[in-house]
Design a protein around this nucleic acid. Sequence first.
DNA 1: GATGAATGAGATTTCATTCAT
DNA 2: AATGAATGAAATCTCATTCAT
Lengths: 245, 245, 245, 245
Amino acid sequence: MNKPERNKPRTRLEQRESDILQAATALFADEGFHNTSTRRIAGAAGVSEGTLFHYFNTKNTLLQAILDDFYAQLIESAREGVAAVMDTRERLLFLAKNHLRALMENQALMMRLIQVYLSVDLNYYRDYRNSPIHDLNYRYTRIFDGVIKEGMARGYIRPELELPIVRDLFFGGLEYGMRTLMSRQYGKDRIARYVEGMIEPLWQSMQASAAAPPAGNAALPPDRLEQTCARLERIAERLEKQGKR
Amino acid sequence: MNKPERNKPRTRLEQRESDILQAATALFADEGFHNTSTRRIAGAAGVSEGTLFHYFNTKNTLLQAILDDFYAQLIESAREGVAAVMDTRERLLFLAKNHLRALMENQALMMRLIQVYLSVDLNYYRDYRNSPIHDLNYRYTRIFDGVIKEGMARGYIRPELELPIVRDLFFGGLEYGMRTLMSRQYGKDRIARYVEGMIEPLWQSMQASAAAPPAGNAALPPDRLEQTCARLERIAERLEKQGKR
Amino acid sequence: MNKPERNKPRTRLEQRESDILQAATALFADEGFHNTSTRRIAGAAGVSEGTLFHYFNTKNTLLQAILDDFYAQLIESAREGVAAVMDTRERLLFLAKNHLRALMENQALMMRLIQVYLSVDLNYYRDYRNSPIHDLNYRYTRIFDGVIKEGMARGYIRPELELPIVRDLFFGGLEYGMRTLMSRQYGKDRIARYVEGMIEPLWQSMQASAAAPPAGNAALPPDRLEQTCARLERIAERLEKQGKR
Amino acid sequence: MNKPERNKPRTRLEQRESDILQAATALFADEGFHNTSTRRIAGAAGVSEGTLFHYFNTKNTLLQAILDDFYAQLIESAREGVAAVMDTRERLLFLAKNHLRALMENQALMMRLIQVYLSVDLNYYRDYRNSPIHDLNYRYTRIFDGVIKEGMARGYIRPELELPIVRDLFFGGLEYGMRTLMSRQYGKDRIARYVEGMIEPLWQSMQASAAAPPAGNAALPPDRLEQTCARLERIAERLEKQGKR
DNA sequence: GATGAATGAGATTTCATTCAT
DNA sequence: AATGAATGAAATCTCATTCAT
């Protein structure tokens, strides 16, 4: 899947804008946002610094534009994939793979960018809900939400499951795992295997069947038993010590 | 639980060092690493810039020291909690709460710092394995790993579960969810409820072979019970012998 | 002879660059390299500090540029003078005067700059041969070498004389003597007298085999005379032929 | 010959002072004056920074002390050598070798130090005559002067020779030549050979005999002749060119 | 006498942004 | 629309020197 080239720029203006975006994307990904000067971006894009600021008023604007592009593609690809597959589990697999693929294809740029953006340039937790990135992310994750809700409606997923939590596990798990994945050489199949390994337990916990014995209680007995055993063990140990004296 | 105050600084040197660390921690948390100048840190700590660099050769050194401190506390509290509780599920609940608590107590500093550190100042994915933070994180997550492995040994967790994936879901989910949590006013119980909501599906998916018998009582570990009984009998016998003396 | 004004700057850029170079030259000369801040240079040149670094990436680059300019002028003037005079002794006199003149005209800057450069900023004796200043100096002293070699070829200088040693005496003596000269008020004729006083013994020691016949007329180069006479006769013959046509 | 150890420090105070001097000497030599911080000197000397400034009020004081020591040794060794040898030429050879040896033994320190001192920290040419280093150097070069004067008195050196000029050639030549010597691997004999090569022409030019044909005139005839030849040559060449047309 | 923590002025360099051309 | 020279504020870090202990 081709990235920024997708919207083929036709006019000279669009070409320039695209050049700048691509150059900035590559440099941000390689060196990080703060370690990349606008001068270098301009140089890499083959334009003057003045021109760069002619297209993007601010370095932050540039970052925002990159994020916009990225999310636009992410959202589009996610929607397409979800529309093409009907099975809920397959849809989740697709979303996960697509998510990782997009992140990695951009040389992990996005993860870094988003983090930097969230962590440094915005006061993230202060005004997250008003930030433009919140909006992007919201629109993106709604696709996931839709899949889950449809799965519930169809009876594949137990309906009392808390959606936000599944969402956190899904995206959080994927991005956390990406660290491990990226620090090694990885192939396409490696990603696929990893994703399947992650969806499997998630899927289990979503199953309607698993809800049958209402969890809460089902988990209690062995714990209770375990606790009692442990207590007895402790007593036994104490007795042993005393015995040795 | 109190943070840097824990190791109460006694000498004047330690006091100063602690002052600087605290000031830097707060500022980094509020404004981000790159938006906080050493001058402001020095000012906030009540020392001159020269003094700051007398204690920490580099702004990065300062960051490193903060991370070291944070992880040291995190690791210690995690170990203590795990040692105090025997039940696997309870342990996971504790680890999750502890993780969130630590992150939030530091004004979400650490998450941001770590991200910045990973994303910007290091070339994260390039030399992650050699970075000092990798080591810290490794030592921390091994505690989680230990809990899971012990759970498997005891029969509470199906042994074919892939540990790295559970780990990614656990920590990734927590940190991803933290965004939501922090953007609202939250109370202690809110965290607790959130954590329990997250552990519940995770725990389910860990249960022994949920695929075959629909979970529930299948989680019973009969051998464990048998072993404990046998041991108790042995102890009883020994006690009987002692009683005969 | 005017220094940086020589290549009259036409464009605004060249003008600025020249301003900066001149300001830096003057300040370095007055206060020394390490005691002159870039801020003061910028101020003296009437530009902002940012502009200064726009033209010269580094304070050292600036120094290098000054040295380049100086040597370029030195080399050019030396070549011109040598080309304009045929007599070896006159050439040496010229080179010596020119050397001192250039050094003094630049407010003794160059001697100081070069020394500082050699002594402090480079590890002089460690990588002298690879330093850019070595190259400049080499190109300059080759002019002297050429004069000496030609003097040998013409029979005015005894050929067994060791060129490096004469070179050391020549330039070393001049620069060492400059200290004395500069600490007093000096006029043009004073320099001239000093130079003549220095060339006199040097020249004597270069004369052909001063050891054998007590010098003086021994310096006569009979073969040179013979060769020239022969050549003149040949030319005369040819002219005669032409006249017969 | 041992350098700073010569005045064997007895008291603890003297030992410390000597330690500091030695450390500073080595570091200045290796890294240059401005690139060596007092902190590093203190560290290398095994004392605290406070102590360093207890012994030497100023970094410049330290430099001055080093120079004092160096010159003291230089002067002493020069005096001893001159006293031990009677022949004028031998004395000059000794002085030259001794000069180079001392310079090189100190890792070329002194040359660099003096240059730095002269070039940067003092406004050398402004108040050279009042500077302490002028005094040291004056006392040192007077030894050379004495040798020359005695040589004149004994009839070995022509009396009309200008002493300052010979002095400049002698010391200037030596120090200029040192650059070449130090940038290669050199042995003791290499220095000796170099010095002899340099004294030879110098000595010739000092000879009383060379004065017999009063130089000035003696040098004229061949020059005059040369000029005439050159002129004739030029005319001949022009004629030849015309002839070829 | 010895220490080394503390200082604060200052040094070089970077950078996003502006604006005259 | 495009340029790139110009800016000046700010950033990190160094350093000789002082002084309380």
